[in-house]
């Protein structure tokens, strides 16, 4: 018993050390956000500021339009996630359960474009969005982020729906339900683990998205997302490291909070998703 207990503590200590190193940049960030600029590199390893400079936060808050960036980010992220879930689930459902003309072509296209990084296509996508008259709108960014790509989400849904027994659907059909009703009433609720996983993965992708929101909101800074706004802040105040650190802490706090609350569910639904 003692052996396992000591090994347990050994592992715990090892992990604690690793995590301490791992989050050192964050500790540095928090400490930097409370220091003066010269103090940031003057003090070496010492993380404690001489006297906390709370003024960094008020400066960061007023210079970066946080409330609007945050609102934009939430709107765009949720819109993108909803769009991806909706279209991937619909497509995944028919791809997973039915045979139809053009199925092979569709899957082929998915596979070919799987590796396509967004940087390659930014110019045509921008031109397209411009022609649709959607530049500088939330909708334009949502479509740009969510309308294409994400073949993985569709394939994930397809894989799941393939495993669901026929009977459920057939009995519903007998009762006279149309395909849409069957899908929304029966199938989509069943796919909850997939939906949660796709939600979280897309959430992270959209939250971190940079190039596309940057380009799409060039002439309307008030539409910027946090990632773009932060980067603009860094670009415009590139030697105000204390202010930057404070801005970074402010932008990180809400996401971290969300993740801390949701992480258990996240892992479990992801596990549920891959189990299929």
């Amino acid at each position: 018993m003692t052996a396992t207990r000591s090994s347990r503590w050994l592992i715990g200590t090892g992990l604690a050390l690793l995590c301490a190193v791992w989050i050192y940049p964050f500790l540095w960030l928090v400490s930097g956000s409370l220091k003066t600029n010269p103090e940031i590199f003057g003090k070496g390893l010492n993380l404690l500021p001489e006297a906390p400079v709370w003024e960094n936060y008020s400066r960061a808050w007023s210079e970066v339009g946080f409330s609007s960036y945050m609102l934009n980010t939430v709107l765009i992220t949720l819109g993108t996630v909803a769009l991806v879930i909706m279209r991937s689930a619909l497509a995944g459902y028919v791809l997973g359960r039915y045979d139809f003309v053009g199925k092979k072509v569709l899957i082929g296209v998915f596979l070919v474009t799987f590796f396509l990084p967004e940087g390659y296509t930014i110019i045509p996508v921008t031109q397209l969005t411009d022609q649709l008259g959607l530049l500088n709108s939330h909708l334009g960014v949502v479509l740009g982020l969510g309308a294409g790509g994400h073949a993985a989400a569709t394939l994930l849904y397809a894989g799941f729906f393939r495993t669901i027994p026929k009977d459920l659907e057939e009995s519903a059909r007998m009762d006279g339900a149309g395909p849409l009703t069957v899908f929304f009433r029966i199938m989509l609720p069943l796919a909850k683990p997939i939906t949660v996983s796709v939600f979280i993965l897309q959430f992270l992708a959209a939250w971190n998205a940079y190039l596309l929101p940057l380009v799409f909101t060039l002439s309307h800074p008030e539409l910027r997302t946090l990632a773009v706004g932060m980067s603009a802040f860094v670009g415009e105040n590139d030697t105000d490291w204390a202010g930057m650190a404070a801005a970074a802490v402010l932008s990180l706090a809400p996401v971290v909070a969300v993740f801390v609350v949701l992480q258990r569910q996240f892992v479990e639904s992801l596990a549920g998703a891959v189990k299929q």
């Binding site: 921008t126 411009d130 530049l135 500088n136 380009v215 060039l218 603009a232 670009g235 415009e236």
Partner: peptide, 23 residues
């Protein structure tokens, strides 16, 4: 007015021109 970092400004101008968003 918007003040941008020189490198960012170049990129922003090129993209803005393509999408008719130039200042």
């Amino acid at each position: 007015r918007r003040q941008l970092d020189p490198a960012d400004l170049g990129q922003a101008l090129q993209l803005a021109r393509r999408s008719k968003q130039l200042p």
